[in-house]
Design a protein around this nucleic acid. Structure first.
Lengths: 345, 345
DNA sequence: GACATTTCTGGTAACGTTCCCGAGAACGAT
DNA sequence: ATCGTTCTCGGGAACGTTACCAGAAATGTC
């Protein structure tokens, strides 16, 4: 276990480090007997190549960096599981960093990961990131990056997203079909790609069903849901309107829980007074009170696909002629929080 | 941004690398003007020392490895946040690995982290780990390790745990005081330290209140809650008993949700028919149906303290005369899932 | 003015690995 | 016997950094 090196093997076997190195890599130009000797000794002494030395030499590390807003969120932890399973099989290690929705920490993490010579980056943007130069410069320099879920519009690289428009349209339409007409939308900062797409789906569903879009029913939470007080204020404002909504459609996990929390405090009955449907990947949506109708994102699969694309980029550095943006479908799981007011299905 | 090195600076300023290196570290033996020259040029060119080279040279990395069962669990993700906040302030980076409750992956992660030259390890044992030689050998070699929550009995190093006996006693006593007499306990594999301690607290509370301990009310889930089917079978067995319990005390997050899930499926009313209290750190316990009485662990603080101890170990390699085992208190948050049967408080 | 001391800087090895270059031995071909 | 191949191996440099050793110049001391 004493971290034996190639030099130690060379000394012990009275060979040169070059020979040992080549024997270890099974080079054709090494005598079979020598090879066998080295291999057996290495095995016996439990030789493991020093990844640091390799990184220094080759400027790469067989590892990929992941930068996400937070891990204490089921969507992201499932995403990580998807990433890890593929990376693991392909011989890559995964280094995880949280931006905590902070631009500064996103930049700091990016720089560190780069100095640590990760071979590629998987990133989901912080909700406070508007300046993207740190990623643009990296792409210029040839660092492979794949964006997931929260992706930048103006950067050309692979992206894995969900069809937010569709998911949002479906959720809104479901609310309408179950009898709601005054549907509010609680969402993230407007400059995030996902915010706009979800808003568009929401708006389109309303219009397709003859309900005029009303901007005052849309609340943006600028801290991306990280600041509970802000979320709760937004819900409160909705309730205080002259015509309070009869349904709330929330665009993220934390927004959803904040919303439920306020409605409970106010003893507002769900779904009788206000129906709720939200984007969320929590595993216990059906244990909530009431069980929550949810737009679920295929987080695991998103992790898989993003990692596959990234590793392909890493291992085939010739620039692909065109970058993909894969859009996966969300699924709407209908539960009691949106049960019909009138008796129909 | 093109990763400038000390050599580049030396060449540009017509100095030697030694001089530049020393100027950068503000060595006393370098002329102030030279120092200023170097510092300014380094700043201008955005010089950043290459951490890989430093790691190779010094066999350390200013980073600490974290090995936990899974991140998709609020206790552990809060723990990580606690770890990160301290580590970040002390200039350390955090590398997270999941064992997924698998012994093999725990060992593999450990080895990798060691080869990556992390300066220390923070570990919460996989529920399937019984052989601890991989950690023992490391400690022998002087690697600082601090265990958290799921700790080994026979290894002598710093440990951060919660007072499982107390938490368990408190929860059980609460069930008794609210009128339950047939209290079941759903728990993790018996060889984990936390399992035994929680069982002891449960048993002691029963005995102190004149309720005989009945082994058939205790169910061990050998996969640590990772296998939902196993958990659900266990609950089912409890329900099928000639004298089914009127309360279930669950020892972990996943066990708790599995339990609630089965009770819901069977349309068993909580708390009227069966009360439920569980160890959990989920942020949405009060949004559950019914709101869940919970034993909450001070995950963030555990992360803080463990990291402080670890960094102290790293930076003061002289062996401490005695290792600490800090035991933090859990808190019992009472909600409706254990509301009294009779009207009293 | 001779010598000791301080101040400043350069060269080099080392961390572990791989790759390029070269070179000796054995071999067959001419 | 000489030459070109093939097989097998060793030497050295390089990745970026710091520490040790040394040495030149400047200053101080008597």
């Amino acid at each position: 276990m004493e971290t034996i090196t190639i030099k130690d093997i060379a000394r012990a076997l009275n060979l040169s480090t070059s020979t040992v190195s080549r024997a270890l890599r099974n080079s054709y130009e090494i005598n079979n007997e020598t090879k066998k000797l080295v291999l057996e000794y290495a095995e016996k002494m439990n030789y493991r190549p020093n990844p640091i030395a390799l990184s220094l030499r080759d400027s790469k590390s067989k590892s990929i960096g992941v930068i996400i807003p937070e891990i204490a969120n089921n969507f992201f932890s499932q995403l990580i599981n998807g990433i890890e399973s593929i990376a693991y099989n392909m011989g890559y290690h995964v280094v995880i960093f949280q931006s905590h929705e902070s631009y500064e920490r996103e930049v700091a993490n990016t720089n560190y990961l780069v100095s640590r010579k990760v071979d590629g980056l998987l990133v989901s943007l912080s909700s406070l990131t508007t300046d993207l130069t740190h990623f643009e410069e990296l792409l210029e320099k040839g660092m492979p990056i794949v964006f997931i879920d929260r992706v930048p519009k103006n950067i050309d690289t692979h992206k894995i997203v969900v069809d937010n428009f569709f998911g949002s349209y479906q959720a809104t339409e479901h609310l309408i079909k179950t009898g709601r007409k005054k549907i509010a939308h609680l969402t993230s900062p407007f400059y995030l790609s996902i915010t706009m797409e979800r808003l568009d789906g929401y708006r389109q569903a309303l219009e397709d069903n003859g309900i005029p879009f009303d901007e005052s029913y849309v609340k943006y939470c600028h801290h991306g849901g990280m600041m509970t007080s802000e979320n709760e204020t937004a819900v409160q404002e909705l309730l205080d309107m002259p015509e309070p909504p009869d349904a709330i459609f929330t665009a993220s996990d934390r927004l959803t829980t904040s919303c439920l929390s306020v409605l409970h405090q106010k003893h507002i009955r769900i779904p009788e007074e206000i129906a709720v449907v939200g984007f969320t990947n929590t595993g216990i949506a059906d244990l909530l009170n009431p069980p929550l109708t949810a737009v679920v994102q295929p987080a695991l699969d998103m992790g898989h696909q993003a990692t596959e694309l990234l590793i392909r980029l890493i291992e085939h550095p010739k620039k692909p002629t065109v970058f993909e943006t894969r859009s996966l479908k969300t699924s709407l799981i209908i539960r009691e929080s949106t049960a019909s007011k009138t008796v129909d299905v």
